[in-house]
Deep mutational scan, measured.
Amino acid sequence: KILMCPEHETERINMYCELCRRPVCHLCKLGGNHANHRVTTMSSA
Rank of each mutant, 00 (worst) to 15 (best):
K29N: 14
N36D: 12
C5L: 00
T40I: 04
C25V: 00
T10V: 06
P6D: 08
H37V: 07
N14P: 05
K1P: 00
L27P: 03
V24A: 06
C17E: 01
E18N: 06
A45E: 06
A35T: 09
N36P: 11
E9A: 10
G32P: 11
S44N: 10
T41Y: 04
C5D: 02
A45Q: 05
C25D: 02
V24H: 06
R38I: 08
R22T: 08
M42N: 09
L19C: 15
V39Q: 12
L3I: 14
K29G: 11
N33P: 15
E18M: 06
H26W: 03
I2L: 08
N33V: 13
G32M: 05
K29T: 11
N14C: 15
N14V: 13
N36R: 06
T10G: 09
H37R: 04
P6I: 05
E7G: 04
N36K: 11
I13V: 03
P6E: 11
T41L: 06
N14R: 06
C5N: 00
T10H: 10
C28Q: 03
T10P: 11
C5V: 00
M42P: 15
L27A: 14
L3H: 07
C20M: 02
M42H: 02
L27Q: 13
E11V: 07
C17R: 00
M42R: 14
K1S: 03
P6T: 13
C25G: 02
R21W: 03
G32A: 13
R22I: 05
L3G: 11
R22P: 03
L3A: 12
N33D: 12
R12D: 02
E18S: 06
T41Q: 08
N36S: 10
E7H: 12
V24K: 02
G32C: 07
H37G: 07
E18V: 06
A45S: 09
T40M: 03
I2W: 03
P6M: 05
P23A: 09
C17H: 01
G31N: 10
C5I: 00
G31P: 04
R38L: 06
R22K: 14
M4P: 04
L3W: 04
E11M: 03
N14Y: 09
V39M: 13
E18Y: 03
C28H: 01
C17K: 00
R22Q: 13
S44D: 14
H34E: 04
E9V: 10
E11L: 05
G32I: 04
R38D: 14
E9N: 10
Y16M: 15
I13R: 07
S44E: 15
A35Q: 10
V39D: 14
N33H: 10
K1F: 06
T41H: 02
N36E: 13
A35N: 03
A35E: 12
C28S: 02
A35Y: 07
S44I: 04
P23T: 13
E9M: 08
H26C: 12
L19I: 13
G31K: 08
M42W: 09
N14S: 10
C28K: 01
K29C: 09
E11T: 07
H26D: 14
P23N: 11
I13P: 15
L3M: 15
K29Y: 11
C28R: 01
Y16R: 09
E18A: 07
L27S: 12
M42Y: 07
K1I: 04
E18D: 15
L3S: 11
M4T: 09
L3Y: 11
T10L: 07
L19G: 14
R38E: 15
I2A: 06
V39H: 11
H26T: 05
E11S: 07
A45T: 07
G31S: 11
N33F: 07
H26F: 03
E18T: 06
H34L: 02
H8W: 00
S43C: 07
R21K: 15
R12I: 07
E11G: 10
M4K: 10
H8Y: 00
M4G: 04
S43F: 03
C17P: 01
C28W: 00
C17Y: 00
T40L: 04
S44V: 10
A45M: 05
T10C: 09
K29E: 14
H8Q: 01
N14D: 07
L27C: 05
C28F: 00
I2S: 05
E9G: 12
V39L: 11
C20F: 00
A45P: 12
H37Y: 03
A35S: 10
H37T: 05
T40W: 04
T40H: 07
E9P: 14
R38G: 15
T40R: 08
T40Y: 05
L27E: 09
M42F: 11
C17F: 00
C25S: 01
